[in-house]
Nucleic acid binder design. Structure first.
Lengths: 128, 128
DNA sequence: AATTATTGTCGTATGTTTGCGTCATTAAAC
DNA sequence: GTTTAATGACGCAAACATACGACAATAATT
C-alpha cells in the first residue's frame, strides 16, 4: 500500500527528514541538546513531560536518521547532535524550497493577487 | 493520548509543517506546482502514479496548512502555491535550525571528534 | 434534457505512530 | 554478592495516515 518508494530519492530523503522532525517532542529534544551540548536520556525525560520509555523511542528515531548519536559512558549514554548530518538535511531542505520561495511568479487566483498587492481578502470563491 | 499540545507554539507549528511535507507525494505536488505555476488536480493525478482520490486528499492536507490554494473556475479548480505561507514556514524552519547548525561546539563523543577531524570511524562504542 | 468531465466526500482496509507499563540487561555503588 | 540506577527492547491500545473504489455534486457540452 505504501507508494513512497516510487518517488525521486531527493523527495524521499527530505520526506524522511521531515517525518522525523514532525513531532514537537523530537524538536524539543533537538533544541535541548543544542543547549546542553550533551546529556543523558534521563535528563531529557526529566525536562520533558514524557515518560522515559517515550523519550527513548523518540531518541531512537532521531538516531535512526543520524540526527543525533550516543556514546556509552559506563551505565549512561551521552547523546549529542550530529551537526554534519543535520547540516546535510537542512541543505536538502534549502535546495528544495529555494526555487519555490525565490520564484517571483504568481498564479491568477484571487488569493495570489491579494498577497501580491497586500490587501484584504474579499473573495468567497476560496476553497478551505 | 496525544501530548503534542503541551509543547511550545513554535515547535508545534514547525512540527505541523514538517508533517505536511513528510510525504514524497506532497513534496512532488509542491514541486509540480512550482513548475506549472497553476494546474488542476487532474493534471497532478495524471503526472503522479496515484489515484485521483489520493491526490485529492494530499491536496487537502497542503490546503489545510495554507501551503497551496485553489480557485474555482467553472468545473475546474486551479491550484497554485501560496508563496507567502510557504515563506513563513521556511522562515520558521530556518529560525529553528540556524542556532543548531551555526553552533561550532561539538560534544565529546567519538563520532563528534571524528567529524571534527574529518577522519575515519574506528569506534565500536557507537549506538546504532 | 441527457451525457460527459472534474472534483470532493464517504467508507474501508491496511499500515504506522504515539505513549506507556513491564521486563531484561548491564554498570556502578555498597 | 546484592542492591541501585540507567537504559533499550517488547508488547499493547488508541489514534492517525495512506491508498483507493464507489458515490454525489455540479458545470460544461451535446
Amino acid at each position: 500500500m505504501n507508494k513512497s518508494e516510487i518517488f525521486e530519492d531527493d523527495l524521499q530523503d527530505l520526506a524522511r527528514f521531515a517525518k522525523v522532525i514532525s513531532h514537537p517532542a523530537r524538536l524539543a529534544i533537538l533544541k535541548f541538546l543544542a543547549e546542553t551540548k550533551t546529556c543523558i536520556s534521563g535528563d531529557i525525560s526529566d525536562y520533558l513531560p514524557l515518560s522515559r520509555t517515550t523519550v527513548s523511542q523518540h531518541l531512537k528515531e532521531l538516531r535512526s536518521l543520524g540526527l543525533i548519536h550516543g556514546e556509552i559512558d559506563g551505565l549512561k549514554i551521552n547523546y549529542c547532535l550530529c551537526q554534519t548530518s543535520i547540516k546535510n538535511f537542512v541543505q536538502l531542505f534549502d535546495l528544495f524550497f529555494e526555487p519555490i520561495v525565490s520564484n517571483s511568479m504568481y498564479c491568477n487566483t484571487v488569493e495570489c493577487i491579494i498577497e501580491k498587492n497586500d490587501t484584504e481578502i474579499v473573495s468567497s470563491e476560496k476553497i478551505d
